[in-house]
Simulated scan of single mutants.
Amino acid sequence: MARVRLVNVVKRYGRVVAVDHVNLDIGDGEFFALLGPSGCGKTTTLRIIAGLETPDEGEVYIDDRLVNDVHPRDRDVAMVFQNYALYPHMTVFDNIAFPLRARKKQLGLTEDDIRSLVVSVAEFLGIKEHLEKYPSQLSGGQQQRVALARALVRKPKVWLLDEPLSNLDAKLRVAMRTELKKIQMKLGITTVYVTHDQVEAMSMADRIAVMNAGRVLQVGSPSELYHKPADTFVATFIGSPPMNLLPCRVREAEPVEYAVPEDLSGGVMGSGKVKTTFRLECPGIALPIEPGIASKIAGVDEVYVGIRPEHLALSGKRVREVAVTETTVEMVENLGSEAIATTRLGDELVKVKLTGEARFKPGDKAYLLIDPRRVLVFDKKTGKLIV
């Protein structure tokens, strides 16, 4: 297997910097995802690892070997492209067998060995009955599975997957996420997976690099990215619905003691009392904050307060001793096991995740409850997490 390292890698196309001083250290056998919006540089980064693009600056290492000048075929990587890249004049069988036949002598394989391996992977991916067809005779999803099979049929040092599930239907896509992860864990192959789908990244990857505008903003486990995002971009890109961000001001106030009753949200918001002399003045509400948090934002006047939808609650009646404000429910999305209510604080829309079927409907007056201990505070000027 192999460790993959990128050291200060830069790639330019004219005046456009597609990859901007990217540093990554991907462990041996790790499932690593590059996550970000379209055009953020994640596919270019993948192609640089594969050798299909040459970096203008920086170094690429595979298994501690500098590979900047190594031809793609000699890097022992297998890549699945988003646009399939199948050979139209070859049958499905021959497409899958191609990488094995290209290294037939090197791998010591016979044609019987190759047929056995091809049939096995085709059966697993549900395309065994299509082995004698040509790519033009297949649907988009079937072509994607052929491309995936071609990468899975041998055991390279590194798998490079560029949105390999993007053309599968929703049901098969969910199933293949599980199967891909199981295969990767069983074989222990270092995997770099490009996606714009946070659910894919969060459910499959050991670690994720969030990219935007060619730069890596944060690298961490799914839990780290979700609970401690490095900046407002990561905070709002990870999570569905995304984190609520409220522009607030830091102010010193009279001492106040607040409590969050546990029974209001089934234990999600916690319980207890805290005394503080600081508060955050936000649209429609003032949030008390603990002295320990206040000391870390000393000297910062304007901030964003971030809070996940599941760390909020709605009540039909007034509740005392809690950070609470009256609001109007503007929209409710019933999702079966849960519901998403959209409410308003001042000029800001706030998403609230409710368990079970919604007890509110658009136009209802309600009380929005916030646990001040669950908020994140970001510097409004830089967007960086403060505490």
Rank of each mutant, 00 (worst) to 15 (best):
T355R: 12
V146R: 11
R145V: 04
N167K: 14
L180E: 02
D20I: 03
S120L: 05
A170R: 12
D69W: 02
A175T: 09
G346W: 05
L225A: 10
N244D: 07
E357H: 07
D25E: 13
G14Y: 04
I189W: 00
L107G: 00
E326L: 01
V153H: 03
V118Y: 01
D64G: 08
L368C: 14
Y226K: 10
A2L: 09
P283F: 03
V268I: 15
P88R: 06
L287Y: 04
V322A: 15
A18N: 01
S120W: 03
G14C: 08
T195H: 10
F237H: 15
G336W: 02
L349W: 00
P135K: 10
R344K: 12
K317P: 09
D379F: 02
Y13M: 08
L217A: 10
L109T: 01
R3K: 15
V352T: 07
F93P: 13
V332Q: 12
V319A: 10
L245V: 13
T328W: 01
A213D: 15
K381T: 11
K384S: 15
I26H: 13
I183G: 01
G14A: 06
A213N: 12
D74A: 13
E59K: 14
M185P: 06
R75P: 02
L24C: 09
I340S: 08
H311Y: 11
V256N: 08
R65A: 06
A298T: 08
Y367L: 00
D162A: 02
T191I: 03
G346C: 09
Q198C: 12
K317C: 03
D76H: 08
M90Q: 10
T110K: 06
L312C: 14
K42N: 12
L217G: 10
V22Q: 01
R308E: 12
D371L: 06
G188Y: 01
I340Q: 10
I49M: 03
H71C: 06
K296E: 15
Y304F: 13
T54L: 02
L131I: 09
I285L: 14
M211Y: 11
V256E: 11
Y61C: 06
L246G: 10
P222V: 04
K186T: 01
A78M: 04
D20V: 01
L148T: 01
Q144T: 05
